[in-house]
Design a protein around this nucleic acid. Structure first.
Lengths: 158, 158
DNA sequence: TATTGTTATACTCTATAACTATA
DNA sequence: TATAGTTATAGAGTATAACAATA
């Protein structure tokens, strides 16, 4: 039997393949989400907002009076993580926390006039960001993706 | 003019709406991705792998001899962040780093037998995870989502 | 008891600058 | 000088336990 030595030939950059991960949803989603995240961060930077604080602001504007537990639930984050977000929005006078007479444990959150103005301007910028990132996708494709995201999200508990 | 006092009525839990974020891709993707991430983490826990280390292992198995810069590029992460991942895979004897004669700066990465075995078992588990999470999506929908993720990813630099 | 908001903490992922050794 | 790998570090997101005030 002859002695064969295996020689490891490094692939050229263009030859590196990820086809074994072709059906790997997490991998594909992660890479796409990173791009979306980075572009969104740039988009929101002029408003000094991050994705989480922007989301919170929009939801408070849409649901005046909601409390932090409700907001955390809609945003799908843990309550402790919401505290710092709400703290900062309040510090910047974009929202107010009102103690309720009926239940003095909870805060009723609502936007200030400044908060509403900033939010509406930021929403326009985010529309541009969406258009930029989804430009290559057909309208049908966008709808399908949106629907799929909701279906995946809904399939959580089983 | 009569003095009207605005009373803030907190919404019931079921009434909290996020329709203002309906077309907000990042928000939808984040929520879906969180679900995928959490389920994947559970799936990979028995193998003591995380999403990043699993991805690295699969890619090294598919591209024997590639170096860390190439791997980081395919995975879309920064080189410094890859070091700890490769360190751990090497420590567990799942991969080896071979110094190349031709360029002593780079490592040629490849899986060991143990690495190949663990990877192949883990890939089967990940298939189950995919089936579980994508169960509600039609095959056409899955294809569209996969394609859309690649398109979004590709639209990065513009 | 249970719930709201809070503090403290820890782990992961991500990003950048600066270093070393090789080329 | 440029590149591969490395170290150190910092920021952001996420998750849990435990507490005070209130119901």
């Amino acid at each position: 039997m002859s002695a064969l030595k295996t020689v490891l030939v490094p692939p050229a950059d263009e030859e590196v393949s990820d086809s074994a991960l072709e059906r790997f949803l997490g991998y594909r989603m992660k890479r796409a989400f990173n791009v979306v995240q980075a572009d969104l961060a740039e988009t929101l930077k002029p408003f000094d907002l991050r994705m989480t604080s922007y989301t919170a602001l929009v939801l408070i504007m849409e649901n005046p009076g909601l409390n932090q537990s409700q907001l955390a639930a809609v945003m799908d984050i843990e309550r402790p993580n919401l505290v710092v977000i709400v703290d900062e929005l309040e510090r910047r006078d974009l929202i107010v926390r009102d103690r309720l007479e009926t239940d003095r444990r909870t805060y009723a959150l609502s936007v200030t006039l400044a908060g509403r103005r900033l939010c509406e301007t930021a929403m326009k910028a985010v529309e541009g960001h969406e258009a930029r990132l989804l430009g290559r996708l057909s309208p049908e494709m966008r709808d399908t993706v949106a629907e799929a995201m909701i279906l995946i999200r809904a399939g959580e508990a089983r």
